[in-house]
């Protein structure tokens, strides 16, 4: 697996983009988009070394990350890129992970499929994204 990006849940995506560009030196890859499936605004930023972060702004309580923002916010997940999404999910479920969101297409990631799991051991949300469409 390779790390694709690290996801942050933020209350205001424009302010967060400014923060990540001005303070941490990231560049916005494209304009941020609204994902109607997840009720979130999303942006991908990158460094010159292609290290990427995803900014996630929940719009309303229908967003899966709305509750996370209410009580925590900030670092939300690590996303790994995998060759075979179904195989990776199966392997991770056998190794201490719970599937918390089934595979769906992600508009921000060129329509590639993503799924979310939770590591029982590390108590960490993991996103998987398929390498191919």
């Amino acid at each position: 697996m390779e790390i694709d990006h690290i996801g942050f849940v933020v209350s205001n995506i424009d302010n967060a983009i400014q923060r990540f560009t001005n303070i941490y030196g990231f560049s916005l890859v494209d304009e941020w988009i609204y994902d109607p499936n997840q009720h979130v605004n999303l942006a991908i930023l990158t460094t010159q070394n292609h290290q990427r972060v995803e900014l996630i702004q929940p719009i309303d309580e229908k967003s899966p990350s709305y509750d996370f923002l209410k009580k925590r916010g900030g670092l939300h997940h690590i996303c790994y890129c995998v060759d075979n999404l179904d195989l990776a999910i199966s392997m991770m479920k056998q190794n201490g992970h719970i599937l918390i969101r089934r595979p769906v297409q992600a508009p921000l990631l060129q329509g590639r499929k993503v799924a979310f799991l939770f590591s029982k051991i590390d108590k960490q949300i993991i996103e998987l994204v398929s390498k191919e469409l």
Partner: peptide
């Protein structure tokens, strides 16, 4: 909170040997 909710799901799956579907979690 949302992370502790996932900790609850994990603990109950392990304690009672049950599988909770992704749609049931929220």
């Amino acid at each position: 909170d949302s992370i502790n909710h996932l900790n609850l799901i994990a603990a109950f799956e392990d304690e009672f040997s049950i599988d909770i579907e992704p749609e049931e979690i929220p």
